[in-house]
């Protein structure tokens, strides 16, 4: 995505959006702020947990056998909670060699096409991720490692990420449809 096409004032108020869309966009914005906070928190927790395990190993001589496993799940959470917010802010990378040569109208069409593609993938992830998690549940898979957590609970992060991604894509398509920009400038936290 090219940030030159990024509308700096993407706030729903600035556009002539129907009330329903405005409320939708504001709700989505609040959800994403929360999701992004969870994603960032996961980075800090991973940092703390690994640093803790190193310290404990050297000063108390104790192993922390759950760390690898927990950190692996934190990485999934960082991705699934962060992916949609990155989309909303136009941070996902596309090859813009051709699209940067297009006029404003062409670019909007290209952006709509991109968002439709993401929406298709998001819907697939919701369905396929749900199926995957339910299959794991049906044969009672547990995670490999020390914790033996039910795997389906962790795998549900995938359809959850799909839901957020779908929201972001629909929000962007609505904004495009009413003359706004696909992406929103980075929100202040």
């Amino acid at each position: 995505m090219n940030s030159k096409s990024l509308c700096l004032d993407g706030s729903p108020e600035a556009l002539a959006l129907p009330a329903v869309c405005r409320i939708f966009s504001r709700t989505v914005s609040a959800i994403f702020a929360a999701a992004m906070a969870v994603s960032a928190l996961c980075v800090l927790v991973a940092l703390a947990v690994i640093a803790y395990s190193v310290v404990v190993r050297y000063f108390l001589g104790e192993p922390s056998l759950w760390v690898d496993e927990v950190v692996g799940y934190l990485v999934v959470a960082i991705v699934m909670f962060g992916v949609a917010s990155a989309l909303r802010e136009g941070r996902h990378i596309g090859v813009d060699l051709l699209t940067e040569r297009l006029g404003p109208r062409g670019r909007r069409l290209a952006e709509a096409w991109s968002m439709l593609g993401v929406l298709a993938l998001a819907v697939f992830l919701i369905a396929n991720g749900w199926e995957t998690a339910m299959f794991s549940k049906s044969i009672e898979m547990v995670s490999q490692g020390y914790l033996e957590v039910p795997l389906y609970a962790l795998q549900l992060l995938i359809p959850f990420g799909g839901c957020l991604l779908a929201l972001a894509a629909v929000d962007a398509l609505l904004r495009l449809a009413f003359g706004g920009s696909a992406h929103v400038g980075q929100e202040k936290h």
């Binding site: 960032a40 996961c42 960082i78 962060g82 992916v83 990155a86 802010e89 936290h189």
Partner: peptide
């Protein structure tokens, strides 16, 4: 932390 998670989410999705 927000910046780091955003960049990583994007790269890991790729």
């Amino acid at each position: 932390a927000i910046e780091a998670s955003r960049t990583s989410a994007m790269l890991f999705m790729i």
